[in-house]
């Protein structure tokens, strides 16, 4: 068994750490992923967001060489994910969606085995990670709670300090403290020049750690955007009540206003942050009785700009 590989050519080969072209996967007649074009760079956490069954796990398993692409291709660190999967996996720490462990082996034995499969002595990093996640490595995995099994799987994925982390719903089952620690670990990883592909159906998680977000619906990547850009466009719900009926025309011309409805004394609409100033000024022309303005969930913002109509396309 060879020792840790030399990475000299990798830096040249891949500024785009993960790159997919028309990547598609069908199971029989069911299309799980359609024409995915996605590029991930060094030093970013990419939040891969979507409801369950949208194709997130399929994407991740394609990248890990566990599934064979039906069409298209993908490269990780310059290596083809199907034909050069072993090389891909040398550079990737993978956390499966529902990680299974060997029931009779302790945490340390897992560390021992998986380190040797990478041609290394047991990674000292595993002990640091276990400490930070507050995990006991001496217990057989069958005696661990679900949360602790997840922690062990996280330790195993992160311990080789690979350039890329592919994490499928990594915080599921973790207590809030461990979730927070894992988010810190992800940020540390990208600060050191690494890349994280993080799948999640929990928006809050993605909001906390991701630099960019991609939204997947029914096997299609419907939007990719920087999180800060998305925040600037974040949708607000405006609800206003007036002393007297107001004309729709006074509001209809404002840029970015959606779902505008004026019924009698009441106005409701949704608008991005950038339009709020003009809306408030328009509202000020009329005697106002009550006003509420609430920020929508990120997912709603996302869907408002990119997602509509996708239901028919699938």
């Amino acid at each position: 068994m060879s020792s840790a590989p030399v990475e000299r050519d990798d830096a040249i080969r891949a500024e785009a750490v993960i790159e997919t072209h028309g990547l598609s996967k069908s199971f029989g007649h069911a299309v799980a992923l359609r024409d995915l074009d996605l590029t991930l760079a060094r030093g970013e956490v990419f939040g891969y967001l979507g409801p369950n069954g949208a194709g997130k796990t399929t994407t991740l398993r394609l990248l890990m060489g566990l599934l064979r692409p039906t069409r298209g291709s993908a490269r990780v660190c310059g290596y083809d994910v199907w034909h050069e999967s072993t090389s891909v996996r040398r550079h990737v720490g993978f956390l499966p969606g529902e990680p299974a462990l060997y029931p009779t082996l302790t945490g340390l034995q897992h560390v021992d085995y998986l380190s040797h499969l990478r041609g290394a002595d047991p990674y000292p990093r595993a002990l640091v990670l276990a400490e930070r996640l507050d995990l006991d490595l001496d217990t057989p995995s069958r005696d661990l709670s679900k949360g602790n099994r997840q922690k062990l799987a996280v330790v195993l994925a992160l311990m080789p300090q690979t350039r890329v982390l592919v994490l499928d719903e990594p915080t599921s089952g973790l207590d809030p403290l461990a979730q927070q620690e894992l988010h810190t670990l992800m940020r540390e990883h990208v600060d050191g020049g690494g890349t994280v592909l993080l799948s999640s159906h929990v928006l809050g998680e993605v909001q906390r750690v991701a630099d960019r977000v991609g939204l997947l619906r029914k096997g299609r990547l419907v939007a990719v955007d920087r999180l800060d850009a998305l925040r600037a466009r974040s949708l607000h719900h405006v609800h206003a009540t007036f002393d007297a009926p107001v004309p729709v025309a006074a509001f209809a011309g404002i840029d970015g206003v959606r779902e505008l409805s004026v019924v009698d004394h009441t106005l409701t609409c949704a608008a991005p942050e950038a339009s709020l100033d003009r809306i408030v000024k328009a509202l000020g022309q009329f005697p106002l009785r009550d006003l509420t303005c609430t920020e929508a969930e990120l997912e709603e913002t996302f869907l408002a700009y990119y997602g509509r109509g996708e239901d028919d396309a699938a």
């Binding site: 060489g65 566990l66 996996r89 040398r90 499966p96 299974a100 195993l156 994925a157």
Partner: peptide
């Protein structure tokens, strides 16, 4: 069947 193949094939082993 026990799903541990993911763990094994997450390693660089052909």
């Amino acid at each position: 069947d026990r799903h541990t193949l993911d763990l094994l094939l997450g390693s660089p082993v052909s």
